[in-house]
Structures are given as structure tokens and as C-alpha cells.
């Protein structure tokens, strides 16, 4: 399984969501099949709810981890 990391730190809403969605759209099939896990790095707090919500609606599982000064939003295949 491949892990693709996208760094959108510095971006605020709604562009952080739109950037994340663009990557989600791009890798959707491979995320759904479990071949790819997408990791979004963001320092925008709002994005920690908007990105997982949008991913959930698209049938993608998400998890948020807090790292020093930013967040890692992990988007992967649903169980």
C-alpha cells in the first residue's frame, strides 16, 4: 500500500478543503480499493472537520492526528 502525503499547510478554508478534495478525486479509486492512503498535512483547524466530513460522505475513512503545530488527516479505505 502506498502512502501519499500532501502538504497544504498555510492554506485556509475553503481552499484547504478544495485542495484536499482535488487530491481525493484524483486518487479516489485507489483509496477505495486500499492501494493508496492519502495523508493531508494542514495547520488549519477547520479543515480537521471539513475534510473528514467530506471524505466520510464520499465513503472514505478518516483519522486525525495532531503533530507539533499541525494536523495529519489520514484518508484511507473504509473497513
Amino acid at each position: 500500500m502506498e502512502i501519499i502525503e500532501i502538504d497544504i499547510r498555510g492554506q485556509v478554508c475553503p481552499s484547504s478543503l478544495l485542495l484536499a478534495l482535488r487530491k481525493l478525486n484524483q486518487y479516489y479509486a485507489k483509496i477505495a480499493s486500499g492501494d493508496i492512503t492519502l495523508v493531508i498535512l494542514t495547520d488549519n483547524r477547520d479543515a480537521t472537520s471539513t475534510i473528514p466530513d467530506a471524505a466520510h460522505n464520499m465513503g472514505v475513512a478518516s483519522a486525525v492526528e495532531k503533530v507539533d503545530g499541525y494536523y495529519r488527516i489520514i484518508l484511507r479505505q473504509q473497513d
Binding site: 467530506a54 460522505n57 464520499m58
Partner: peptide
């Protein structure tokens, strides 16, 4: 989420970034 501010994208940037395309693709998956 929040609305798009004109200072984030000028008109040409808006077309170039194509948020409608992104959202419509996302909605397709939804």
C-alpha cells in the same frame, strides 16, 4: 465550509483552479 473570497482567487484564478470541477467530481463520488 467557508465561502470563496475574491482575494483568494481573481476571476482568472477561479477559472484556472476550477472549484466547480473539483466539487462536482467530489459530488460524483458522494
Amino acid at each position: 465550509t467557508k465561502t470563496l473570497k475574491p482575494e483568494d482567487f481573481d476571476d482568472l484564478g477561479l477559472v484556472e483552479f476550477d472549484p466547480l470541477g473539483i466539487i462536482s467530481n467530489a459530488f460524483e463520488h458522494v
